[in-house]
Design a protein around this nucleic acid. Structure first.
Length: 636
RNA sequence: GCUGGGGUAGCUCAACGGCAGAGCAGCUGACUUGUAAUCAGCAGGUUGUGGGUUCAAAUCCCAUCCCCAGCUCCA
C-alpha cells in the first residue's frame, strides 16, 4: 500500500504503483480538470509519475507559479513541434518558460517572418487539436546522443555532452516529436487552450555574442481564451504607462535624432529632476554627506591610472585639446579621488562621505538605447565613502538603509537585490576580491533581505550589490548599487593617518541610490503612470476661471498658492471649463480649482482632484494648506 | 554591435507604381461658457537622408541615419 498525504494533512492509502493521475481521479472534479502537474515530495513531476510508498502530494494548476511554468514549457514544445513540421531542417536549441510566456530558439537557414509566425501558430492549433499524449522516457547518455545525432540536432547533442555525469537524461514525446527535456509536462497537447506567438528576435546561442545567432520565437499561453485576451489587453495598457510616451505627452523630456541616447529635459521634466535632487540633498546632508562637483573632462592619463583605459575604453569618449589626449568621464570616482588626495586625512575624519551629482557619458551600443532608461549621458547620484576596514560593514548597512528608505518608504517601490561578483576582466588579486565580496555578503546577510548572486557581473574594480526596479512591462533595471573597492585605493595610493601617526590604506565604497536621475525618472513615470505625487508634479494646481470675468479672481488665487510655494498655473484661455478640466486631467494635474460667480461671491474655490473628483467648494486657505501639507509630507 | 520590424504634417495614422489625405494639436473668428473635447474657417509636407530603377516612386532596389522588440552589455 502507498500512503498519500495531501496538503491539508489528510492521508489516504492507495495500492502500490499508483500514479499521481490515479490519485487525482479520487479528488474533486474541478481539480481533476485543472491539475497540470503534481508536487511529489517537494519535486514537481508529471501526473503519470508512479508514486513511492509514502508520499506527500499536491496538485498544481495554472494558478500556481510552477504549474504555470510547466504549462508554458509544454507550449514551447508544441511550438517546436510545429516548427519542425513546417521547417524540417530547423535545429532545436532551448525553449524554456519565462515570466509571462515562453520562447524557443531555432537554428534556421532564413529568419522567420511575421507571416511565418501565423503559419506556425496555425500548426500549433492543429497539434493541440490532435491532443497528443505527452510521455516521458529515460535513456542512457549514449542512447540520447545517438538519437539526437541521427536527427541532426547538434545543439541537443552539445547539451547532452555537458550534462553532469550523474544526471538522469530524459526525453518527452508527443506524436512524432521528441525533445530532450527534464520536464515535467502537462499530460497532453490538448491541455493547452489559448496560445499566441508574439514576436521573433535574434538571440545568441547560450547568450554569447561570439556564438551563432539563432531565431527566437516568443509566445504566451493561457488555459482560457479570455485570460489570453486579458493578458494582451494588459500589455496594451502597460504601453500607456511607457515613459517614452508619457515623456512626450506630459512634455517632460525628449530624445532627438541629433543626439541618440542624449536626452533633453523640458521645463516640466526639470521640475521633477530638481525636486528629486533637493530631496536627495536633504537626505544626504542629514546622513553626513558632503557634496562636490568634478569636471566632465579630464586628461587621459588619469583614466590610464585608474584602469578605465584598460578596462572601460570601449565605453568612453575621447577628445584632443591643445594636442593633449583627454577623456570624458564615464564615472565620477577618479575625480573624487583627486579631491580626497588634495590634503592629508586623519583617522578621526573617517568615514568621509562625498556625494556628487555627476554627469557621465558612456558609449552604449546603439541597440540598447531606450528612452531615459538606457542613455549615453546621465547623471549619477554618486557618492564615494573613504573609510577604514572596520567601518565598511556599518557603512554598507547605512547605504542599504537609504535605499530602503528611498525606494520603499518614499516612493512605494518594490525592488530586488543582487550581489554581483568578480568579472572575467578584473583588476586586483583574488584575495582582495574575496575580502570585498565578503564585506558585501556579510552586510546583506545581516539585513536578512533575500538576494540573488550574479556571478561575474561586478565592476572591474570591485564586486557590487545591485538594487533593481521594474518598468511598466515588468522588465527590471538596475538602479541603486553599492560597490566595495579595495583596488582604486591601491592604484591611487589612498591612505589616512592613523592614531600611530602612520599611513594606512583605506577602503573606498562607490554607491548610487537613484542610480541615474534619468533612469529613476523613467521608472517613476511608469510606476505612477505620469500621475506623480503632488510633491513631484510639475504643475501641482491649475486654476480654471469659468469665463473672462472670473480671470482676475483666478489670478489672485493662483498668486495666493504660488506665494505658499505651490506650483500653480492659471488657465485663462477662452474655453469651456469642461474643456479645461479635460486638459488638466490628461496632464495629470493633481488639483483643479474652478472659480466662477459663486466662488467669487463666497470667496471660495471649487476643488477637483485628478483621482478623487469633485471635492466641492472651500476657502482658498483650506486647499492651500492641504496641498502644502501633502508636499511637505511627500505623500504618495 | 547583432537579428527582425518600422520611419508620411507637432502627434496618431491613411494612401502601397499614376494629383500626398484624415482626426487631434496650432492659428483666426464667433460663442461667455459650472467639473473629461463648442462651432466655423485657415494654415501645415523635398514622405528620415543620399543614390538608383521607371514615362511616372511615399510606394520597387541599394546605402546610410534614427526608432521599436529581443540578444549581448549596463546606472
Amino acid at each position: 500500500m502507498a500512503l498519500v498525504v495531501f496538503p491539508d494533512g489528510s492521508r489516504r492509502d492507495f495500492p502500490d504503483g499508483v500514479s499521481a493521475a490515479a490519485v487525482l481521479k479520487e479528488l474533486g472534479q474541478r481539480l481533476q480538470k485543472e491539475a497540470l502537474v503534481a508536487r511529489v515530495n517537494g519535486r514537481v513531476a508529471d501526473l503519470a509519475t508512479v508514486l513511492p510508498q509514502e508520499v506527500e502530494i499536491e496538485f498544481l494548476t495554472f494558478a500556481d507559479e510552477e504549474g504555470r511554468d510547466v504549462y508554458r514549457h509544454s507550449s514551447a514544445h508544441i511550438l517546436a513541434q510545429a516548427v519542425k513540421r513546417l521547417y524540417p531542417q530547423a535545429k532545436l536549441a532551448i525553449g524554456p518558460a519565462i515570466s509571462d510566456g515562453f520562447y524557443y530558439d531555432f537554428d534556421v537557414p532564413a529568419p522567420f517572418t511575421p507571416e511565418d509566425l501565423n503559419r506556425i501558430e496555425a500548426e500549433m492549433a492543429r497539434i493541440i487539436k490532435e491532443d497528443l499524449p505527452i510521455t516521458r522516457f529515460e535513456l542512457s547518455r549514449e542512447e540520447a546522443r545517438a538519437l539526437f545525432e541521427a536527427a541532426g540536432e547538434d545543439y541537443k547533442v552539445e547539451i547532452i555532452d555537458e550534462l553532469p555525469p550523474e544526471s538522469v537524461i530524459s526525453c518527452y514525446r508527443q506524436g512524432e516529436f521528441i525533445d530532450l527535456c527534464a520536464g515535467p509536462h502537462v499530460p497532453s497537447t490538448g491541455c493547452i487552450k489559448a496560445v499566441k506567438l508574439l514576436s521573433v528576435a535574434g538571440a545568441y546561442w547560450r547568450g554569447d555574442e561570439r556564438n551563432k545567432m539563432l531565431q527566437r520565437i516568443y509566445g504566451t499561453s493561457f488555459p482560457k481564451r479570455s485570460l489570453l485576451e486579458e493578458h494582451l489587453h494588459r500589455l496594451e495598457e502597460a504601453k500607456r504607462r511607457d515613459h517614452r510616451r508619457l515623456g512626450a505627452e506630459l512634455d517632460l523630456f525628449s530624445v532627438r535624432e541629433e543626439g541618440p541616447g542624449l536626452p533633453f529635459f523640458h521645463p516640466k521634466g526639470v521640475v521633477l529632476y530638481n525636486e528629486l535632487v533637493s530631496f536627495w540633498r536633504e537626505e544626504h546632508r542629514r546622513r553626513g554627506y558632503q557634496e562636490i562637483k568634478t569636471p566632465i573632462l579630464l586628461r587621459r592619463e588619469l583614466w590610464e591610472r585608474s584602469g578605465h583605459w584598460d578596462h572601460y575604453k570601449e565605453n568612453m569618449y575621447f577628445a584632443m585639446i591643445d594636442e593633449q589626449p583627454y577623456a570624458i568621464k564615464p564615472m565620477n570616482c577618479p575625480g573624487c579621488i583627486l579631491l580626497y588626495q588634495r590634503r592629508l586625512h586623519s583617522y578621526r575624519e573617517l568615514p568621509i562621505r562625498i556625494g556628487e551629482m555627476g554627469l557621465v557619458h558612456r558609449h552604449e551600443l546603439s541597440g540598447v538605447l531606450h528612452g531615459l532608461m538606457r542613455v549615453r549621458s546621465f547623471t549619477q547620484d554618486d557618492a564615494h565613502i573613504f573609510c577604514r576596514r572596520d567601518q565598511v560593514k556599518a557603512e554598507i548597512l547605512a547605504i542599504i538603509e537609504i535605499v530602503e528608505y528611498f525606494y520603499r518608504t518614499v516612493f512605494g517601490f518594490d525592488y530586488h537585490v543582487e550581489l554581483s561578483t568578480k568579472p572575467e576582466e578584473a583588476m586586483g588579486d583574488e584575495a582582495i576580491w574575496e575580502l570585498a565580496e565578503a564585506a558585501l555578503r556579510e552586510a546583506l546577510d545581516e539585513t536578512g533581505m533575500p538576494y540573488r548572486v550574479n556571478v561575474g557581473e561586478g565592476a572591474f574594480y570591485g564586486p557590487k550589490i545591485d538594487f533593481h526596479l521594474r518598468d511598466c512591462l515588468g522588465r527590471t533595471w538596475q538602479c541603486g548599487t553599492i560597490q566595495a573597492d579595495f583596488v582604486m585605493p591601491e592604484k591611487f595610493d589612498l591612505f589616512y593617518i592613523g592614531e600611530d601617526g602612520q599611513r594606512h590604506r583605506l577602503v573606498m565604497l562607490h554607491r548610487v541610490v537613484f542610480g541615474s536621475l534619468e533612469r529613476f525618472i523613467a521608472i517613476l513615470t511608469e510606476h505612477f503612470a505620469g500621475a506623480f505625487p503632488v510633491w513631484l508634479a510639475p504643475v501641482q494646481a491649475r486654476v480654471l476661471p469659468i469665463t473672462e470675468r472670473h480671470t482676475a479672481y483666478a489670478a489672485e488665487v493662483t498668486c495666493f498658492l504660488e506665494e505658499a510655494g505651490v506650483r500653480a498655473e492659471l488657465d485663462a484661455r477662452n474655453e469651456k471649463v469642461s474643456y479645461k478640466i479635460r486638459e488638466a486631467q490628461v496632464q495629470k494635474v493633481p488639483y483643479m480649482l474652478v472659480v466662477g460667480d459663486r466662488e467669487i461671491s463666497e470667496h471660495t474655490v471649487s476643488v477637483r482632484h485628478r483621482a478623487e473628483g469633485d471635492l466641492g467648494p472651500m476657502p482658498p486657505g483650506v486647499i492651500r494648506d492641504r496641498i502644502v501639507a501633502e508636499i511637505k509630507a511627500r505623500r504618495i
